[in-house]
Structures are given as structure tokens and as C-alpha cells.
Design a binder for these strands. Structure first.
Length: 651
DNA sequence: AGCACGCCGACT
DNA sequence: GTCGGCGTGCTC
């Protein structure tokens, strides 16, 4: 017997192994196995089993799972994702079956027949050690013992509970304020739960939107809401795993991690704030869980709801194409809008534009709650010498570096290298250094200096957890100032009187072809989450733009689609980046030539881009919509030092 | 992804 | 003479 095993390596092929007779009765597709691979021991996943015998094959060491942990639906979903994201199936399966997924720790043995071994009540993983694994497998297969998980006390894998199955496939885009989204979700969830069906709801993150919806839904559906995701402890995750497997009328909440979680009688998938980048996985298998949800709903033949305040260009197109039905509720757009073009100001003296300070001051006098948004998180994104005009650059990769005051160091946005900060110019030795492109840390600093008796809190990705906590402690009525990045748009339920955008328009410069859309999302979601009464948009004289189009959703997406269509950008065709990493420059040209020739993709290359990093990194940007393209790209896995990224975030 | 092997330039 | 960086190829 031969098993074809997919390994978590950037190799397209699967590898064949002989199955020793010991394991032959138990091995099944999608079970994890450990195998010898050169001089390593790897965990892979069986994708196919074949009768017969071949010479020169190594033997499987061990079967990891007593039953396959993904069902038919998820297996198909993984195969689709592998193709769609041009990723070897082994890497996809590794994501769907992470090493932390160890049900044997939570399964207890129930003796059904008298046998010699006293294993009753013992966890499966201990039984493997006390007895022999194959004997446990045997006892299980023969019905001598039964496995029950400690959370639901259900038999594992057990019988799938029978419930009514009638669901119609339906694709919905719900655009509206978060209160109305919540009501809509609850209505739809209630409907499914009453029939004993389960619901999968995906949220961008755990600590902000996740806990917010989790708490609300737990109140609405007591004892029926479970979270699945890496933000919580393994044990709780496994509790959700077993409930999803045995439960009736459950709501499974999660972030991108839960898209490959098997759920019995999954009857509805909801994706909240589909447009968030949090749904993207950036390491190993790169994918967008919000997009994968669409495929999952189609495989499971169940309805899908995308809900958001700000939709997305891609979904807008799907609505136009008639694929999606749209439900639109009026967004409470902030009516009191003020645009202020700021004069140039001198930041080395710790100042902010006068107009900004005045706005904050007037809010303080009225005891208002104020939130200030800025696109940058550090003290400043640029340091320039006022004498020789040189900009401080990264010693590793020569990009312009930012300054972090709390660590007193400079940090490179492109290669992440940190280095100590010197108050003198590295070029001319001058002490007149200017911080420009200032961010959260700077504004927080200045305001704390000028505003006493009024709490100022910085809200960035790493402080958000604490901020949520202190806002709870702080109570509902007292005033405060929040200074933060786009994470502010996730502070649902935080009532704000004044929302101030400081150089929000700068997003347009840094986010590539998605820049306009990104700026739109941030603006709309900030207003949605914080429900300000007044909106102040502070723009630098040099970069000021017309903001009116950002307050007209339909018009905005219409023009966005026009631009994308003209350029052949998504959603009209897809983009792939081929990354090539090398130490030296000489052999790259040959490799790029090979990629172009062997891949046959010469017509679509927008690069190559040269990036200085530890070594050298080249990027070939490939556009296309033909199915042929992905199969050509798959071929590139045969070449060394090549990595492929589908649907990149920024170009 | 690792890891071995083999090629050149640099050095006690 | 050999040490070591880097490029290439292979893994059932």
C-alpha cells in the first residue's frame, strides 16, 4: 500500500511512502502522518492511498490522527485554495491542520467491552503511551472502546446529528451602520438556530471587533456562541472545535483562522467587514479568508452574507454583475464636516498646527470626547537635517526611516531593522534635525504636554487591548482624547463628539492602486464605529484633496471601477508578485530569464523591481485573468529562491 | 524549506 | 594549500 503525502514545503509534488502493514487497516486520506524526509522527520497529510507496491519508497513512521480532522467540504476547499493562491497543497493543509490541533488530549476513552487493558477514562494521548497506538486504533475501529471529548461528552467522530437541510444559496451584501448590521445578523442567526443549524461568522480580529460582537451575541444567544482563533488559548479553541463538530444551533465566531474549521450543518456564513486586511494571512500560505468564505459557501451550498459600512470595490462589482444582492441602509454620515487646510508648521519644537490645537481646545472647553486619527503610528516617519537637507536612511536597506520616541530608536518601515537614534545628522553633524510626517506618538506627546487634567490615550495595534480595558474602567460619561491609527475604527460603541483626521489624505500616497479605496474604508469605518457629531479634516497645504467624493459611496465605487478597468487591475483580473531572493545580483538575470521563458509569462511583467534587503529581492508583477496563468505560475515552484504572492496588498 | 555538494576567491 | 560564501539541485 502506497500513501501520497503532501508536505508543508514550497514543493508542488506530493511524495509517496509505503504504508507498513501495521497501519494499513487505519490509514485514510487527510489524516496527518509523520514521515522520514532526507534526514528530517516531518508531519505531512495523506492526500491519496493506492494499492500496490513500489521499490525504493521509504515507510511512514506513524499516523497522527485517529480519524481525519477535516471533512469533505474542507478538503475540497483546501484544494481550491491551493489552486487559487498558487500554493502547494501541503502548505494549505498545514494551515487547515495546524500542529496545535491535537484532539487526542481532549478525548477520553470509554470502555464498551471488557478487555485486558484498563484504559477507561484515560485521555487518548496517554493511552497511546501506556498501550500501543495501533492497539488503540484497533480497539476503536472494532468498537471495543469509544472516544468522547471532554467538552461535549459526544462520541468522536460520532454520528452527525440529523436536522432539516433546506437552505437556499444566496449571496448578500449588507451595507449599513453597525447597529443595523448587528440586528440583521441576529435575525438571520436566530432563524438558523431555531432549525438547529449552525452559523459561521467571521470577524477581522479578536481583541477589537471580535470581543465586541462576541459579547453582544453571547447575550443574545446564551451558551451558543463559541470563538475559534489563535488569539485564545488552545484549550478553548479545541472546545470550539468539538462544539462545531457535534453542536446543533451554534454560532461559531472567529477570525481568518476559522475559515477551514469543519462545522456540521453549517447553514450560513457571515463575514463582517470583509474589506479589512486582517482577513489576510501573510506568512506561509498567503490567502484572504474573506474571499475563501465565498468559495466555502458555494461548496457547502449555503447563504453568505458580507456586511460592512463601506463595502469594497470587488463586492461592488459582484453586485453590478448580478452575482450579489445588496441590502443598503443609510449610513449616518456625519453632517457637520469641516475641512481645514493647515499652514506649514515647525515640528522640531514640538508643535502642532495652530488650527488643530484650537479645535482640540474648544472641544476640551465643552468637555467633549475627541478622537484624532493619523495614518502613522510612530513619532515620525521621516527625519531630515535642516542644514544639509539629507534624510536619515536605514543603514541596512537605505529606505527612509521613522523615529520611535519611547524606544529612542529609528526603525525601517521596509526591512524592519532598528538602530539607535543619534541627535546629530549622520552626514554633516548638525543638531538641527526635523521630524516630519509625524504620527500617533508625536501627537500624543504634544497633547499630553499641553492638555492637563484631560486624559490622552494612544491607540495603536499594540496598545489597543489596554485602551479597550481602560475605556471600560473609565466609564461612559467622562471626556478623553484618543489619538490613534486606523484601529480607532474598531472601537465600536465608543461615543465621540469630535473626530479629527490629521493628514488622513496621506494614505493616498502609500497604499498603491488600492489607496483610494483604503482611504474610503478608513473614513467610513471611523464614522461608523465612533459616530462623531463633528468631523474635522485637517489636510496639509501640499497634499490637500477634494474630500467630497469620499462621502458619496455609489459615485466613489463607480469611478473606482472605471479606473481599475482601464488599468486592468483587480477586480478586472488578478495580480501576482513573483519574488526572487538572492545574495548577489549576477545570477538573477538568468533566473528572471528562466521565469519568463519557462513560465511563458513575458507579456505580463510590470517589473522587475529592485529592492535592497539582506540580499537582493526582485519582484515581477504579473497581471492576468486567464486560468492558464495560475498553472504557469505553479511551474515556478520548480525554480529555486522564488516565491509567489497572489492578490498582493500593495503595489 | 533545509541540506549537501561543488565552485571559486581569500587567507593563516 | 584549505576555509567559507554562494549557487544549484534534491528530497519518496
Amino acid at each position: 500500500m502506497i500513501a501520497h503525502v503532501a508536505l508543508p514545503l514550497p514543493i508542488t509534488r506530493t511524495f509517496s511512502y509505503t504504508v507498513p502493514s501495521l497501519w494499513q487497516p487505519y490509514i485514510q486520506p487527510f489524516m496527518r502522518v509523520t514521515i522520514p524526509f532526507t534526514n528530517r522527520r516531518l508531519t505531512g497529510c495523506v492526500v491519496k492511498i493506492e494499492e500496490g507496491h513500489k521499490e525504493n519508497l521509504k515507510e511512514i513512521y506513524d499516523i497522527v490522527d485517529i480519524v481525519p480532522l477535516i471533512d469533505h467540504t474542507i478538503a475540497r476547499l483546501c484544494e481550491w485554495a491551493s489552486q487559487y493562491y498558487v500554493t502547494p497543497i501541503g502548505m494549505v493543509l498545514k494551515y487547515a491542520l495546524p500542529a496545535s490541533l491535537r484532539p487526542e488530549r481532549y478525548l477520553l476513552i470509554h470502555k464498551k467491552e471488557e478487555d485486558a487493558e484498563n484504559l477507561h477514562g484515560m485521555p487518548l494521548n496517554r493511552a497511546y503511551k501506556v498501550s500501543k497506538k495501533e492497539r488503540i486504533f484497533h480497539a476503536c475501529a472494532e468498537g471495543i472502546i469509544e472516544l468522547r471529548d471532554i467538552f461535549t461528552d459526544s462520541s468522536f467522530p460520532g454520528q452527525i446529528p440529523q436536522i432539516s437541510r433546506a437552505v437556499k444559496q444566496e449571496k448578500l451584501l449588507f451595507i449599513g451602520p453597525f447597529q443595523s448590521r448587528l440586528e440583521f445578523y441576529i435575525t438571520r442567526i436566530t432563524h438558523e438556530l431555531q432549525e438547529g443549524r449552525n452559523v459561521l461568522m467571521m470577524l477581522p480580529d479578536y481583541f477589537m471587533t471580535g470581543t465586541y460582537f462576541y459579547n453582544l451575541l453571547k447575550k443574545e444567544f446564551p451558551d451558543r456562541v463559541y470563538w475559534y482563533g489563535t488569539a485564545i488559548q488552545v484549550r478553548s479553541r479545541m472546545a470550539t472545535f468539538f462544539h462545531a463538530r457535534h453542536g446543533k444551533g451554534m454560532v461559531i465566531l472567529g477570525n481568518k483562522n476559522c475559515i477551514f474549521l469543519p462545522i456540521v450543518h453549517n447553514a450560513l456564513i457571515i463575514v463582517e467587514r470583509f474589506e479589512e486586511d486582517d482577513f489576510r494571512n501573510e506568512e506561509g500560505f498567503r490567502f484572504n479568508a474573506g474571499r475563501v468564505a465565498l468559495q466555502r459557501a458555494s461548496i457547502e451550498n449555503i447563504p453568505l452574507i458580507y456586511g460592512s459600512a463601506s463595502a469594497s470595490t470587488e463586492l461592488f462589482k459582484r453586485v453590478k454583475d448580478g452575482e450579489f444582492t445588496v441590502i443598503e441602509k443609510t449610513l449616518p454620515l456625519c453632517k457637520n464636516r469641516y475641512e481645514i487646510i493647515t499652514k506649514k508648521y515647525q515640528s522640531p519644537f514640538g508643535a502642532l498646527p495652530e488650527e488643530l490645537m484650537n479645535t482640540v481646545q474648544s472641544g476640551i472647553e465643552k468637555k467633549e470626547r475627541i478622537a484624532i486619527f493619523t495614518p502613522r503610528r510612530d513619532y515620525s516617519a521621516r527625519i531630515q537635517c535642516l542644514e544639509c537637507k539629507e534624510i536619515v536612511r536605514c543603514p541596512v536597506c537605505e529606505s527612509m526611516v521613522g523615529y520611535q520616541k519611547k524606544n529612542n530608536r529609528i526603525i525601517c518601515p521596509s526591512c524592519n531593522a532598528a538602530s539607535p537614534y543619534s541627535t546629530e545628522c549622520p552626514h554633516c553633524g548638525s543638531a538641527f534635525m526635523r521630524f516630519s510626517h509625524i504620527g500617533v506618538e508625536y501627537i500624543e506627546d504634544v497633547l499630553k504636554e499641553h492638555v492637563t487634567q484631560y486624559p490622552v490615550m494612544a491607540v495603536t495595534a499594540d496598545t489597543s487591548k489596554d485602551v479597550v480595558h481602560s475605556l471600560e474602567q473609565y466609564g461612559a460619561a467622562k471626556p478623553f482624547i484618543l489619538v490613534g491609527t486606523q484601529i480607532l475604527s474598531k472601537l465600536y460603541g465608543t461615543r465621540i463628539e469630535k473626530l479629527i483626521l490629521f493628514e488622513w489624505e496621506d494614505i493616498l500616497k502609500i497604499a498603491g492602486y488600492r489607496a483610494e479605496e483604503k482611504a474610503f474604508h478608513i473614513l467610513t469605518n471611523l464614522c461608523d464605529a465612533l459616530t462623531p457629531q463633528e468631523l474635522y479634516i485637517f489636510m496639509d497645504k501640499k497634499t490637500a484633496i477634494d474630500v467630497a467624493p469620499f462621502f458619496n459611496m455609489k459615485g466613489f465605487y463607480e469611478s473606482e471601477l472605471k479606473k481599475r478597468k482601464a488599468a486592468g487591475f483587480p477586480p478586472y483580473g488578478r495580480i501576482f508578485i513573483i519574488e526572487i531572493e538572492k545574495k548577489k545580483g549576477t545570477s538573477q538575470n538568468a533566473l528572471i530569464k528562466r521565469i519568463m521563458e519557462e513560465g511563458g509569462i513575458k507579456g505580463n511583467i510590470m517589473g522587475p523591481y529592485l529592492q535592497k534587503k539582506q540580499g537582493l529581492k526582485w519582484k515581477l508583477i504579473v497581471r492576468g485573468k486567464k486560468e492558464r496563468l495560475t498553472s504557469m505560475l505553479f511551474h515556478l515552484y520548480d525554480l529555486p529562491n522564488v516565491r509567489i504572492e497572489a492578490d498582493p496588498l500593495s503595489i
